[in-house]
Structures are given as structure tokens and as C-alpha cells.
Design a protein around this nucleic acid. Structure first.
Lengths: 217, 217
DNA sequence: TCAAAAGTGTTACCAGTACACCCATGG
DNA sequence: CCATGGGTGTACTGGTAACACTTTTGA
């Protein structure tokens, strides 16, 4: 086996909302710094499926929103041995069984606004993933992926506020999200502390990507 | 050498504007269909530099706008041998010596709106690159990369029209592009068929990415 | 003096934003 | 009946889009 044979890995930045904060799953090998969960592509048929396997390893979930972020290369390891890391990010619904015991590595959720120091270039990858998430949230409907299958409009708004880090106007939020036609009401109501909330669900047939107004004419 | 050792390659979708059309550089091995230019990553220190080398091979240019697009994996080659292709796209100024003889493969420019059939998944990659280019053009200043160092506002507008495939209003275009502050006038004028045009240049200190208004409140 | 391209302002409309009160339920 | 969160409409304002003529040069 030549040592020019490259090492191919995927890593997955897994986001979820818990305790009113956006959280990311990090793992830690003994005596080492924290890292994003990483998996060798080797036994898997494709990059996608390796990323999904990484997610399943860590959370027990067999599906989630998963999107390729970027590919990084690195030659600084064993002399001449190239490492290529394909980074993904994933969004997990906040009601799912998060860190299943199935996770081989020691993993835990960390708030993204105060993560521990990360090894390799994982800090950079996390920053980029967060930027992509915020950016994407602004012009697509991807925010639903962080919620249970049905949710109230207030919950949805809170999710947006948590990720974007700013307060939003309730009436404007509702009007726009409804006009965009990406969610539909169910007949179910949820009883809570105050007046019951009507529950909504994501419309499977909705166009995910809505075109924003462009800068240039 | 194990046959699980993955093949790592880059391909580069090179765009330029010629003859009032957006063109892409394709290459053709003897007796084979057209492909995007491809290069093995192997001898290069990083994915980036491999992509740049691919570009230099084909055009003689040693720099250009270059951006990573996506990574594709494929197991359908020799049994079990994994291929990973990292795709880039590049923008070449329309005045540069395009297909330098330095290109080892037989390469030629093709209009993107009527490309020949492409092998592998290169048709898909090209389509994606074009989508990204159009999309990017709408909210960043990347369009300048397709022009010479100095250019008139009309030339700039024509470039935008060619890529976006629609006519734009002259006054609105000028107002907005000037307000955005990404270009500055030079003292040079260019004589032509009619009234001379003032030439502009891209401002190196300009913020490349301008935030567009967002969909959700 | 004609053709060809460069350059220049104003108006109308629509969409985004700001804003305050009533409603339904549980305790 | 009170506290809690859910739900609703309007007026203003700022940005976007539509639009036509004058200017400068070369032939």
C-alpha cells in the first residue's frame, strides 16, 4: 500500500435546538481535544451515505436534513499522506432522541455560541456551517427541519429567533411565512399554559428555495 | 496497492464570455465524448492547487476566480475502486488568451446554452455550475471577473445580460451598481463607434458579498 | 448631418416595517 | 377573575421598476 493513498473522511456538523439555544454535537477521544464527529468513507458506497452513517452512529437517527458543505484537504499528517475531509451539516428535530448511546465516541451537545476549543480545522468548519445555516435560513424554508413534525407558529418563530439571534415581529412573521405557502395548518390544537395553539406542518410539496430579491438589476 | 485506494480528481468548469455568449471549456480525448477538464489531485499539495493547475494546463493562466462547487463520489468504475471528484468553477476575463496551446487535452470553447453531450455526470456538474454562477451574480460582484481589468458600464451590463439571459434597464443598472460602490471610475476613456465611454475598474477593497434582503422577517 | 453608443432624473407603485389590542384556556 | 400565551389589521414609508431624451464622437 503506497503512502500516497489518500485518507478520505466525512465530518458532520449536527445542529439542533435545545434549551432555547442552537447546539452542536461534538465528540472527544480520551486525552484529546473536542472534534466534530468524523467517519472514514472507506466502507461506504458514497460520500452521502458515509455522512448519513456518521449521523446515525452519533444520534441513532436514520434520516435528517443533510447537506454537503465543503471539502478540505490537508497534507500535514504523516509525511506525504494526504487527508481529504468532506464536511456536511445536518439539522435534527428538537424532539428526537438526541445523543443515542449508540454513539461510539464520547459525544455531547454544546451551544454554538460558546463551543470548546476544537482540534484540526474543525473550528473553522463549524463557523462556516453556522454561517451557511443562518444564511440559508433567511431565504429557504430549512428552519422546519429543526422542529418536530408539527409545531405552532410561536415555536417556529422562536426557532428563527434563536438561530438568527434577533427578535422578530410576530404579525409580520406570521403573515410572511403563511404567504410563502410553505406550511399548512393541521386540525390539531395543542393545549398549553395559555390559549391553545393551532399546529402546523411543513408542506411536502412546497418549493424549498424561494428566490430572494437580487442586488443587481 | 489495495484497490480500495480511492481515486481523487478535480474538475474545473471554466466560464468566459465570447461572441456575446457564455462559453465553457470542454475537452475531448480521442474516440470519447466531451468532458470537463479533469486532473488527478495526486501530485499537488491541495485540492485548490490541483484545480488551479488544471486551469493553468488548459488556459495558460496562472490566476483566475476559482471557487469550489461540490464533491461527487462514484463507485461504478473498476470494481470497488472509488472515485471522488471535487468540482470547481472558474471565471476567465474575456480578453485573456483563452485556450493556450499548453492544453494537453483537445479543448475548445462551447456555448453553455448548447453544449455537446457530456460523459459521466459532467452534464449535471455543468448545470449546477451555471446555476451557481447565475445565482452568485445576482447578489455578489463576481461578474467583474469575466471582464478585462477596465471596462465600460455598457460592457458590464452586457455581461450581466448575457449570463442572466434577460435585458436590463440601463439607468437602473447604473444607479445600483454605482451605489453598491464596487467599481470606481478611471480617468481613461475609450473611443469607439459612438460617444466615448468612461472606463471603470473593480475596487479591490470592495466588499465582495452584499447582503440581499431576506425572505423571512 | 447622420448614425451609434453614452449618459442622465422623475414618478408611481408595491412591499416591508412598525405598531396595540382582544381571545381562549387553565389555575 | 387573573395570568399566560395565541391570534389578528392598518397606516406609513422607503425602495424598486418603468420610462425618453440629450450628448458626444466618427464617418
Amino acid at each position: 500500500m503506497k503512502d500516497t493513498c489518500p485518507v478520505l473522511e466525512v465530518c458532520v456538523v449536527m445542529f439542533t435546538v435545545q434549551d432555547s439555544r442552537l447546539q452542536v454535537l461534538l465528540s472527544q477521544q480520551p486525552q484529546s481535544s473536542w472534534h466534530l464527529p468524523v467517519l472514514a468513507v472507506e466502507p461506504h458506497p458514497s460520500l452521502e451515505s458515509a455522512a448519513l452513517a456518521c449521523l446515525t452512529n452519533c444520534t441513532g437517527l436514520t434520516e435528517a436534513y443533510l447537506e454537503q458543505l465543503y471539502s478540505y484537504s490537508d497534507c500535514s499528517g504523516q509525511a506525504g499522506r494526504r487527508r481529504v475531509m468532506v464536511a456536511y451539516f445536518a439539522l435534527l428535530p428538537s424532539d428526537q432522541p438526541s445523543t443515542g448511546g449508540a454513539c461510539r465516541q464520547e459525544a455531547a451537545w454544546h451551544p454554538v455560541d460558546a463551543p470548546p476549543p476544537l482540534g484540526d480545522n474543525h473550528g473553522e468548519i463549524l463557523k462556516y456551517a453556522l454561517r451557511r445555516l443562518r444564511y440559508k435560513l433567511e431565504y429557504t424554508a430549512v428552519g422546519f427541519e429543526l422542529l418536530p413534525e408539527t409545531f405552532s407558529l410561536s415555536e417556529l418563530q422562536r426557532t428563527y429567533e434563536i438561530i438568527l439571534g434577533e427578535k422578530l415581529d410576530k404579525r409580520n412573521f406570521r403573515r410572511r411565512i403563511l404567504e410563502a405557502g410553505v406550511i399548512e395548518p393541521t386540525n390539531v390544537q395543542r393545549m398549553g399554559e395559555g390559549r391553545p395553539a393551532r399546529l402546523f406542518r411543513y408542506r411536502a410539496d412546497a418549493v424549498a428555495e424561494v428566490k430572494a430579491r437580487r442586488l443587481f438589476p
